[in-house]
Design a protein around this nucleic acid. Structure first.
Lengths: 218, 218
DNA sequence: CGGAACGTTGACTGTCATCAATCTCTGTGG
DNA sequence: CCACAGAGATTGATGACAGTCAACGTTCCG
């Protein structure tokens, strides 16, 4: 199943349906009664989401941040898959554990970092996930709108814009076109975030290689 | 295995060991380089924690908030348990999903609520989990120190103290002894939190009853 | 009794949110 | 091809809320 940017992915009646991200990027978005929005989680390729992970808030929904390809796996299919092959089952549970770990790290980021550190952490995360190294530095596409980034980092969109402007003024990030960023010197950026090491462990190439193992199996 | 209050529970070398909470309350605590602390998660009885859920931060550790009884389950035992009985396996995955859901709700709380709303949400959570109703209202023990509560809610301890004082001044909570609170009128408290409904869904009696099912099986 | 850890309170500071105005992109239709 | 509209992004002025630092209270322990 394909999803266009900004398309919502219905969380079906099936309370334990699994959604597997093939390509693209999904966000788990909620909205509180008084229209405060929050993005709880980013789902990268190979991530697994189950409807029952969603918090019981009225407005919780998955949405595609960019064009994405996803698989919907009915709950019983998921269970039988996991049970049929112990090796696959172990991979699934490792994948889910990694996602828990990421979620916990994100709590730490939102809970104890200031605005600039959060933004830096987010940029590092993107660079690790979807960045490509070139002679000029690390460049990557920014797959979320300013509003979505702000919601993800628990910042105000205006505040986020200010922080980005400051980073640009300092030459830490360069914005070539809308939606595309270049980090000339990765080290400087890494020094801005106190959780760089953890981000590398969870989003860096080691994590990806482990995950490719996964794809091979599937 | 028993743990005294404030005792740390080592996260063993075994990267996928499971810890099962029988009684008491555990906290998942981290500390950033510059000694900013953060409690990422509360683990209530029947919760499952796996070492691999912990974020890769140097200071991440489980600690008992009150006297607790826990089981350590080696990773292979855990897997075989989950696979041996499909019914048990389903229960385990439901339990883990519920914990994900709680973690996500906590992100929403920290990310979009102000101080007073966070404290109110926390009190509601405690009341639902460990509160007992009496003619005077709902009373419960406060199982965390002020510092730990502050770290859990991503607030400063001083700020938390101020908020609590304000709630006491308004008569919304009454503190009989240190470590014990009484909420005369639950409705007033519930109105202070925008996520009351979600808290009830995840911590209320319905959730507990489902969980008892679990104990019966184990 | 005395000390240490924990909690409370006040004065002050800094960061982030709010509101409003302006600017920049993107896509549409004349 | 240009003009226009509308969403998204930026920026400034201002204010509210939470953090910091320091002093003082309280509780619990030996």
């Amino acid at each position: 199943m394909r999803a266009r940017p900004n398309q919502k992915i219905a969380l079906e009646a099936d309370p334990a349906e699994a959604i597997f991200v093939r390509t693209g990027l999904l966000v788990l978005r909620t909205e509180l009664p008084d229209k405060r929005r929050q993005i709880l989680n980013l789902l990268y390729p190979r991530d697994i989401f189950r409807t029952s992970f969603s918090p019981p808030l009225p407005e919780a929904a998955l949405a595609a941040a960019v064009a994405s390809e996803i698989w919907r796996v009915p709950s019983n299919t998921f269970e039988t898959l996991a049970n049929s092959d112990p090796c696959l089952g172990a991979l699934l549970s490792r994948q889910l554990a990694a996602q828990q770990s990421r979620a916990n790290l994100h709590v730490a980021a939102i809970g104890s970092l200031n605005g600039e550190e959060r933004v830096a952490s987010f940029l590092i995360e993107l660079a690790l996930r979807i960045g490509s190294t070139s002679p000029d530095g690390i460049s990557f596409q920014i797959p979320l709108s300013r509003n979505d980034i702000a919601d993800y980092l628990a910042l105000n969109a205006d505040t986020l814009s200010r922080i980005m402007s400051r980073l640009k003024a300092r030459g830490i990030v360069v914005q070539k076109t809308r939606g595309r960023a270049l980090v000339p010197d990765g080290k400087v950026l890494r020094d801005l975030s106190p959780i760089t090491d953890a981000l590398v462990a969870l989003h860096g190439s080691a994590a990806s290689i482990q995950a490719q193992h996964f794809s091979a199996l599937a």
